[in-house]
Amino acid sequence: MSETRLRVERGGEVTQLLVAIREDLEADSSVMLLLDATRSVLEPVAACGLDETLRTSARVPLGQGFAGTIAATAVPLVLDEVRSDNVVNPMLHRRGIRSLVGVPLLSDGMVIGVLHVGSLTPRTFTQDDIERLAARAEDLAVFVKDRALVEEHVAALVLQRSLIPTVPPRIPGLDIAGRYLPAEGDLGGDWYDVFSLPGGRVGIVMGDVLGHGLGSAVIMGRVRSALRAYALIEESPARVLEMLDHKIDHFEAGMLATVVFAVASAPFDTFTVSSAGHWAPLLAGDGAVAQVDVPHDPLLGVEPATRRTEVQVSVEPGEVLCFFTDGMIEQRIDPGAAIDPDRGIALVAANLSAALTAEANCISILAGAMPAERNRDDIALLVVRRDPDA
């Protein structure tokens, strides 16, 4: 068995793995079905020994038919005789599959799909067949999970890179630079945004959708787009965040996000700022750095009826605003040390200077405030400096 047991490698193909499984069980077909995102339907994603019509012709509701029963109970099942009334996909019967054995695909104890093999001649699958198929299913589940994690991470990174500008737009009168540093593990929903608005206004956003992975990145993209849309029709940052909160409550139930949104017009001497549970920006000028006094309204997704507040922040020529997500300040600066946001903010402030350009400030902050080890959380950083000659 050790020589024939499936060796799962990241670069393999699911179909090739199913070929090996079919051969090992001396069967005529092998099929893998995976639960969809709602965990209510099994979708056939790969097969060996069956034509394309059979592979893709049916989805199996959880709890129904042969595969649906296996997924619902997480228990192997044998059909000595395949009939049109005991399988959801009638093509199995029509294509001559006479007997089936199937086992659940498990990941961390949770069913993610079903693996089954079939015979074109009547056959009684034994307990040994079930155990061999279950062993193969363990390997296949590891492969699926590993590949899904890699693909999800890459997809989230591509999505996030497409939404977060590496080089922020040029705004006359402002010097702007930003950084997005993905964590070593899962990506999250951190983002920053800078965009022009009607009437010569500029919108500046720093936000964080709670959670990790592709799901958070996708929601982040929707939240980002919705905020931009609301900002086109509403001048008040507080009102924009109220509208965004209602949108999240209706369409993204259960999602939480923190956002700080600022709007300013040339010559950018005043920024109107509203915060939905997000860290207030730092303001640097005349050798001093202090956190802007912005009311800490509730996170988005908590109290959609909240009347949000906004404040006017004066920015003198040459002064610098620094926006950041919690990944920037909630770092373990020393191995084993407790997370101390106040210390993190102090480190950012110590490396922020009105004497530096926005780009130089980004470099200084990351060099001086980042721990020696790789960041464990996503980091978004945005520095906005008013033209000293304004």
Rank of each mutant, 00 (worst) to 15 (best):
residue 234 E to G: 02
residue 192 Y to Q: 03
residue 252 E to T: 01
residue 198 P to K: 03
residue 175 D to A: 11
residue 215 G to R: 15
residue 171 I to V: 15
residue 176 I to S: 06
residue 198 P to D: 09
residue 249 D to P: 05
residue 248 I to S: 01
residue 174 L to V: 10
residue 219 I to F: 09
residue 229 A to Y: 04
residue 194 V to P: 12
residue 253 A to L: 11
residue 199 G to D: 14
residue 238 A to K: 07
residue 239 R to Y: 01
residue 215 G to H: 15
residue 242 E to C: 02
residue 222 R to D: 12
residue 246 H to E: 12
residue 194 V to D: 13
residue 221 G to Q: 13
residue 227 L to H: 05
residue 261 F to D: 00
residue 205 V to E: 05
residue 264 A to Y: 09
residue 179 R to E: 12
residue 248 I to F: 02
residue 262 A to D: 00
residue 189 G to M: 07
residue 192 Y to T: 06
residue 198 P to G: 14
residue 264 A to T: 13
residue 252 E to C: 01
residue 265 S to M: 07
residue 219 I to V: 13
residue 215 G to S: 15
residue 257 A to T: 08
residue 220 M to G: 00
residue 263 V to A: 00
residue 205 V to R: 02
residue 212 H to T: 15
residue 252 E to I: 03
residue 214 L to Y: 07
residue 263 V to L: 01
residue 239 R to I: 01
residue 200 G to S: 11
residue 180 Y to E: 05
residue 204 I to G: 08
residue 202 V to M: 10
residue 248 I to T: 01
residue 219 I to L: 13
residue 236 S to C: 03
residue 180 Y to P: 04
residue 239 R to A: 06
residue 185 G to Q: 12
residue 199 G to N: 12
residue 241 L to A: 02
residue 226 A to E: 14
residue 218 V to C: 04
residue 225 S to Y: 11
residue 264 A to H: 09
residue 198 P to N: 07
residue 196 S to F: 12
residue 249 D to L: 00
residue 210 L to P: 01
residue 251 F to D: 14
residue 209 V to P: 11
residue 222 R to G: 10
residue 208 D to R: 06
residue 249 D to K: 02
residue 226 A to K: 12
residue 244 L to K: 04
residue 209 V to C: 07
residue 247 K to L: 00
residue 204 I to K: 06
residue 178 G to I: 13
residue 260 V to D: 03
residue 237 P to H: 11
residue 232 L to Y: 07
residue 181 L to N: 08
residue 173 G to K: 03
residue 213 G to T: 10
residue 255 M to K: 07
residue 223 V to S: 06
residue 259 V to T: 01
residue 194 V to K: 09
residue 223 V to A: 13
